[in-house]
Design a protein around this nucleic acid. Structure first.
Length: 440
RNA sequence: GACCCCUUCGUCUAGCGGUUAGGACACAUCCCUUUCACGGAUGCGACACGAGUUCGAUUCUCGUAGGGGUCGCCA
């Protein structure tokens, strides 16, 4: 029998790192074994579920590249994949329990499932065999007075109906799993193999919730300048250590290496710095075109515009090693796209303190103006020539030129900037700097 | 309160009876360098505690402490 796993989010809010990582491990397990990854939306709580949240979760999963084989918009023969549309199935299963004498009504009409009150063992690939002795806990409610069903019930019914072979979910469910098994038994069904994965905690060790920094996929990653591959990779490292030399691994490598039994049983704290490090690694590998494609929305959001994609691609590529997030890109490249860029104030003050800087800039400008071709090499040669006539080192001129051309004291190589913006703008920017900054 | 899971550098972790306890991120220093970065090198830094088993415990067992989780007509 081929493996079937599912991610079963409740659409009450954004896709969360914890949920994303659960989906990720399910996906990895399915892809590794050639099994089926199912997406099931657990929207039985009409009061708290929203269509926006549901759409947001799908969007987040797609962004991470977690495609599902069955589920919303994908179809499948176990549908519908929204629990809100499966009432007939639940009614039928409820009837089985009723016939077996395993349910009874509360005064207000709510229905409870009569626990077997026997010891129940959960077979878990991560936690091992965990046995729960019979408890004093009250029988659980499985149906509300209005006829709608409760999570534990629908979850189990669907796992039976959708023929799940493994249930990979957060460890917060482990304590309730015996109730699910009790239900499986009551239906005469075989429980799936469980894989309870550790939780992702805040840096301070508290449980990560929706409000916490770094928790929402869309807000903290998609919109914060992360690359999907980097987030995918980092999330895998939280609770699982692939047997590999490097931690930086591609999707296919992670898929090949995935081993559910190797997942840790202890919780992991979230480390934004490390997530950013992964992102920086992936950012640097992007080709100029690919980087521009990723960067485009972040650049335009800052009002930067251009017509020459090749030039824009070269511009972002020239600073790829200086940033770890796409959101940092605009501040590093804005001067490639506009002539009215501001000059950093502290540098202006320094330059004004040395009037001789004007002569240095003029000398560089004169040499650059004489250049017959415009390559990084020719720019370099011109600056070198200017330095020679002044009897100083070219390294003395570079910072001045950088500032004239970008308004900043840091950035890519001066020759790279000059080459990319072209001779005309290079000379014009030097004039502007002489006018507005150095001369006074 | 009851029950369940967990416990190695600040963080993620390797380790599966005998190791100078290894790596990654972060941090610090140095090198490289027209800046900022990248890269390279070095450093800093951990087995929660107590018993037991054993010739020998980070590793096995039990206990304690600490952390997390569950005990909903939320999922």
């Amino acid at each position: 029998m081929s493996l079937r796993v599912r991610f079963a989010p409740s659409p009450t809010g954004d896709l969360h790192v914890g949920g994303a990582r659960t989906a990720l491990f399910n996906w990895l397990m399915a892809r590794k074994t050639g099994g089926t990854f199912i997406l099931r939306v657990e929207d039985t709580d009409g009061a708290r579920n929203t269509a926006e949240a549901s759409a947001g979760i799908l969007k987040g999963l797609r962004w991470l590249g977690l495609d599902w084989d069955e589920g919303p918009e994908a179809g499948g023969d176990c549908g519908p994949y929204f629990q809100s549309q499966r009432k007939d199935i639940y009614d039928a299963y409820f009837k089985k329990l009723e016939d077996a004498g395993r349910v009874y009504a509360e005064p207000d009409g709510a229905m409870r499932f009569k626990f077997s009150r026997t010891a129940i063992t959960v077979h878990d690939l991560v936690c091992g065999d965990v046995t729960f002795a019979p408890t004093e806990e009250p029988d659980m409610t499985i149906r509300r007075p209005d006829g709608s069903y409760i999570f534990h019930f629908v979850n189990v019914v669907d796992d039976i109906e959708m023929r799940m072979t493994h249930v990979i979910r957060g460890e917060d469910h482990l304590s309730n799993t015996w109730k699910h098994i009790d239900l499986f038994n009551a239906f005469g069904a075989t429980p799936p193999t469980y894989v309870h994965i550790p939780l992702i905690l805040n840096p301070d060790g508290t449980k990560m919730s929706k409000r916490d920094e770094g928790s929402a996929i869309e807000h903290s990653y998609m919109n914060a300048g992360f690359l999907p591959d980097a987030v995918f990779n980092y999330l895998c490292m939280l609770g699982w250590t692939p047997k590999a030399e490097s931690e930086k691994l591609s999707r296919s490598e992670l898929t090949a290496l995935f081993d559910a039994e190797a997942i840790h049983s202890s919780n992991a704290k979230f480390d934004l710095k490390k997530a950013q490090w992964f992102n920086a690694q992936y950012l640097r590998e992007l080709s100029p075109d690919a980087l521009l494609q990723q960067a485009r929305p972040f650049l335009t959001a800052k009002g930067l515009q251009w017509t020459d994609d090749a030039m824009a691609a070269a511009a972002v590529h020239s600073v790829r090693e200086k940033v770890s997030l796409l959101t940092e890109l605009p501040e590093w490249v804005h001067y490639f796209f506009r002539e009215d860029f501001p000059f950093e104030e502290d540098v202006v003050a320094k330059l004004k303190a040395k009037p001789e800087n004007a002569d240095l800039l003029k000398a560089a400008s004169d040499q650059l103006a004489q250049a017959t071709e415009w390559t990084e090499q020719s720019v370099h040669d011109a600056v070198e020539a200017a330095a020679n006539t002044l009897a100083i080192k070219a390294g003395k001129l570079m910072p001045l030129l950088r500032f004239a051309l970008s308004g900043q004291s840091r950035g890519p190589g001066v020759t790279t900037i000059a080459h990319l913006i072209g001779k005309e703008k290079t000379l014009a920017r030097i004039q502007r700097a002489l006018r507005e900054v150095v001369d006074n």
